[in-house]
Computed example of a mutant assay.
Amino acid sequence: MASAESKVVKLPRRTALKQTTLTETIFVEIRARLQRGEVGPKDRLLDYEIADEFNCTRMPVRQALLRLVNEGYLVGTTRGFVMPTLTTEDVHEIFEVRRLLEPSAAAGAAAALTDKQEAALKRAYQKARKAYDKGDSALMIEANIEFRDVWLGAVQNARLKATIQRFADHAQQVRLGTLSNPATQKIVVDGMRALLEGFIERDAKQIKSAMLEFILSAEQRYFALLNGQD
């Protein structure tokens, strides 16, 4: 009898684990598409289409989409899920949070950064240089994400890391609207270079200053373009 009861308990637990893993996979993939700009403000995400793509039921898809809604990546509508429309106030608030969190977090990551991570930062910077030389905004977005993910990987506080990741991703609409501009691309490359120099030296003070300047420059550039100032 005990053996039979044990089997009854284990089966749904394995099923739940499988569904949870699938939900996480779908969540990570859709978030990555949003980060890379493969999903735009005019696109609609439909649960049955995604379920067909992943060859699964709609349940794990809806769970993944609702998690993206809860974390601010998407909003639900009667016709599917879409990216949120950011107001000027929204953008100001996103940059404010980034100014408050990222400089200190990046400075704190300096001591924990490994040689392997330093090498990855250098590769991301070189990719950004290449993107700037070619005027390739898609490659620039890719390099920007890689650079951020590397230094975030050295942040020891998991909650802080997740919060920074989320707010940086919320600024994706800003990046999509500005990174095709050569002057904006130069700000990104210059900011990466200053940060890279700080990380190579493991200089927390330099990193904190460089990150704050980087975010301020990006914010100023965004609103300059918004107001028609090229």
Rank of each mutant, 00 (worst) to 15 (best):
Q172T: 14
L179N: 12
L176K: 11
R166N: 08
S180C: 04
L176S: 07
D133G: 04
V155Y: 13
R129M: 04
A138F: 13
R148D: 06
S180E: 08
S180L: 06
L179V: 06
Q172Y: 10
V189D: 01
A171C: 06
A131E: 01
S137R: 11
Q165C: 05
I164N: 05
L152M: 13
Q156L: 10
F167S: 02
L139I: 01
S180K: 12
A158R: 15
D136Q: 04
D169L: 02
L176T: 02
D136T: 03
Y125H: 14
V188P: 12
I145E: 05
L176N: 11
I145A: 03
I187F: 11
V155L: 06
Q172L: 05
R129Y: 03
A158K: 15
W151K: 01
F167P: 10
A143E: 02
G177R: 13
I187A: 04
Y125C: 00
Y132K: 09
A168T: 05
V155P: 15
T184A: 12
R166L: 06
A183R: 15
L160K: 13
A131H: 06
V150L: 08
I141W: 08
L152Q: 14
L160I: 05
R175W: 14
M140L: 15
N157L: 04
L152H: 15
R129G: 02
V189A: 02
T184H: 11
D169K: 02
I145Y: 14
I164F: 11
Q156E: 12
Y125I: 00
W151A: 00
E142V: 00
A162W: 10
F147D: 01
A128S: 10
K161C: 07
